[in-house]
């Protein structure tokens, strides 16, 4: 099975830096989006069991290569880094279009994407890419396996009450969640072997993309302003015995109309 895993490099959780107070720094201090590592782990397990290999695909500035290195160290065979100054400031629509174009240059049985990104930008990208490529789309996977005949993919889609079992022929695009299982630590062998693995870069021109469709000027959405959340007043701390604490808590909640 040849599986392409979409990886997004996002600011390290808790360490997001603001450039000039307005935009978040997406050029450095990045790590692979948490959910992307779960789907990568699943992809690696599947290819280890059924043969084949895993290709990483990311779109982002030079700092995005951090996320690729770790994926290669975990065991992906190669990576494709879509990078071009023209992409800077692209909106979600442009991102989907660019990644779809990149996927058209690759051969695969499955494309994996993680659910929602920790930077709050995700949620629709996987569905949009699948639609643009006319691929069967299976989302919110907690489990993935090939079908018995090997020609299709079967997932457990998380639901409010349990899960649904979905099947589709390959090639297909699967969006997955944390329930897929803990990603492996890159082994030392993997870390030191990563240096000999290929990272191919692709530019706007390589993908034949119309420049007027991407970048800040083409963005269909824009940020009007950024602010820190209203500060919380410091906590009231209760150190009394449980009964007194509970009584004080009830008063506190009642004053806020919560009980």
């Amino acid at each position: 099975m040849h599986i392409v895993v979409l990886v997004k490099a996002v600011p390290i959780v808790g360490n997001e830096r603001l450039l000039d107070g307005q935009r978040v720094d997406r050029g450095s201090g990045l790590e692979a989006n948490g959910n992307d590592e779960y789907v990568l782990e699943t992809a690696l397990k599947l290819t280890e069991t059924h043969g084949g290999d895993v290709t990483l695909l990311t779109m982002g500035p030079a700092g995005a290569a951090e996320a690729l290195r770790k994926g290669l160290a975990m065991g992906a065979a190669r990576a494709v880094h879509v990078i071009d100054d023209a992409f800077g400031g692209s909106c979600a629509r442009a991102t989907a279009e660019v990644l779809a174009a990149a996927l058209r240059t690759l051969t695969f049985d499955l494309v994996f994407a993680g659910a929602d990104t920790s930077d709050g930008q995700g949620g629709t990208l996987a569905a949009s890419i699948a639609t643009r490529l006319d691929l069967p789309y299976l989302s919110y996977a907690g489990h993935v396996e090939p079908t018995a005949d090997g020609a299709g993919v079967r997932i457990h889609r998380l639901s409010a009450v349990g899960h649904d079992v979905l099947e589709a022929p390959m090639p297909a695009l699967v969006m997955g969640t944390q329930v897929l299982g803990e990603p492996r630590y890159p082994s030392l062998r993997g870390i030191m072997g990563a240096r000999s693995k290929e990272i191919v870069t692709r530019s706007l021109a390589d993908l034949g993309i119309d420049p007027s469709r991407v970048g800040a000027d083409a963005a269909t959405t824009r940020v009007l302003g950024v602010s820190p959340p209203p500060p919380r007043a410091g906590a009231t701390v209760l150190r009394t015995d449980p009964d007194a604490a509970v009584a004080a808590t009830i008063d506190f909640l009642a004053a806020r109309g919560l009980v």
């Binding site: 997001e16 709050g120 820190p228």
Partner: peptide, 10 residues
């Protein structure tokens, strides 16, 4: 955004 560390208006 970022789990509430930033509020963005778009």
């Amino acid at each position: 955004a970022f789990g509430g560390r930033l509020i963005t208006r778009s």
